[in-house]
Amino acid sequence: MVSRQGAIVIFVKTPGYSPLKTRLAQTIGQAQAEQFHRLSAAAVAAVVQKVAQQKQVTPYWAVAEEAALTDPLWHQFATLFQGAGDLGTRLAHVNRVLSEQHDFVIFLGADAPQLPVTYLTDAVDLLTNVTDQRQFVLGPADDGGFYLFGTPICLSQETWLNVPYSAANTAEKLLAQLEGQGDIQRLPALTDVDTVRELQTIIQEQSDDDKLLPEQRQIREWIRQQNFPGD
C-alpha cells in the first residue's frame, strides 16, 4: 500500500455576504440562522482539525463569496473560492483545483455539527491506503443528500452536473454516476440541518458525550437554550 495525502474541504457561505439557511431562517429568524451556521461550521472545523492532527490531510474552507475569502470567520484554514454557477459547477471547480495538489478530496457540508471524529477518520483511512480497486466514500444524509463525499480522482464536470442537488435522491443519483468507477464505501447516515425540527435531531445523534469536542458541546447547549417554535 502507498500512503496518500489528501484535502478536506468544508463548503460554507459567509454571513453578511449571502443569504444562508433560508428555510431555517423562515422559522427562527435570520440572526439565529446565521448564528447556527457560525457555530455549526466551527464544530465541523473542530472535527476536521482533530483529524488533521493525526492524518496526512490539509483542511480548507470553500467559500461561496470571493469577497469573503479573507473574512476573519475563515481564518482557521486556507480558503478557496467555490466559483460561480450552481452547486454542481462549484463542486466540480473545487474538485479540480484540489485534485491538482492532493491525492484525494473529501467534501463536507457545514450543517452536520454532530459529525463524529471517527466517521471522518474512517473516510480518510479508506482513501489513504491505495488498493487495486479505486474507492469512494459517501456519508448519506437522512434527507437523501450527503454530508460527506470522498473521491480519489477528479470527477468530470458532467458527473457533478448530472446530480440533482437538494433533492430526496441526491445521494442515489451521485452513486449512479459513479457506477463502474470503483467501490463505494458508506458511512452511517446523519442528519444535516435545514429546518428547526432537525436541530433537535442532531442533539439526539450526539449520543456519546465523552467523545464530543468543545465546539460540538457548545452548539448543543446553544440549541437547548433557544426557545424555537415548532416546525
Results as ranks from 00 to 15, higher is better:
residue 24 L to F: 05
residue 25 A to R: 03
residue 26 Q to C: 10
residue 26 Q to V: 08
residue 26 Q to N: 12
residue 27 T to N: 08
residue 28 I to F: 03
residue 28 I to S: 00
residue 29 G to V: 10
residue 30 Q to G: 08
residue 32 Q to I: 07
residue 32 Q to Y: 06
residue 32 Q to A: 12
residue 32 Q to K: 11
residue 33 A to D: 02
residue 34 E to F: 05
residue 34 E to P: 02
residue 35 Q to E: 15
residue 36 F to N: 00
residue 36 F to W: 02
residue 37 H to W: 03
residue 38 R to N: 10
residue 38 R to L: 14
residue 38 R to I: 12
residue 39 L to T: 02
residue 39 L to N: 01
residue 39 L to D: 01
residue 40 S to L: 04
residue 40 S to V: 07
residue 40 S to A: 15
residue 41 A to F: 01
residue 42 A to L: 08
residue 42 A to G: 08
residue 43 A to S: 09
residue 45 A to Q: 03
residue 45 A to Y: 00
residue 46 A to F: 01
residue 47 V to F: 02
residue 48 V to D: 01
residue 48 V to M: 04
residue 49 Q to F: 07
residue 51 V to S: 04
residue 51 V to H: 00
residue 51 V to E: 01
residue 52 A to R: 01
residue 53 Q to M: 11
residue 53 Q to V: 07
residue 56 Q to V: 11
residue 57 V to Q: 02
residue 57 V to Y: 02
residue 58 T to A: 13
residue 59 P to M: 12
residue 59 P to C: 14
residue 60 Y to S: 08
residue 61 W to C: 05
residue 62 A to V: 09
residue 62 A to K: 00
residue 62 A to P: 01
residue 62 A to G: 11
residue 63 V to S: 02
residue 63 V to T: 08
residue 63 V to H: 00
residue 64 A to W: 05
residue 66 E to Y: 07
residue 68 A to H: 01
residue 68 A to L: 04
residue 70 T to L: 15
residue 70 T to P: 03
residue 71 D to G: 12
residue 71 D to S: 15
residue 72 P to E: 14
residue 74 W to T: 05
residue 74 W to I: 06
residue 78 A to K: 14
residue 78 A to P: 02
residue 79 T to F: 05
residue 81 F to G: 04
residue 81 F to E: 06
residue 81 F to R: 03
residue 83 G to W: 03
residue 83 G to S: 10
residue 83 G to A: 10
residue 83 G to L: 06
residue 84 A to D: 12
residue 89 T to C: 05
residue 89 T to D: 06
residue 90 R to M: 10
residue 90 R to S: 09
residue 90 R to Q: 14
residue 91 L to H: 03
residue 93 H to E: 11
residue 93 H to D: 09
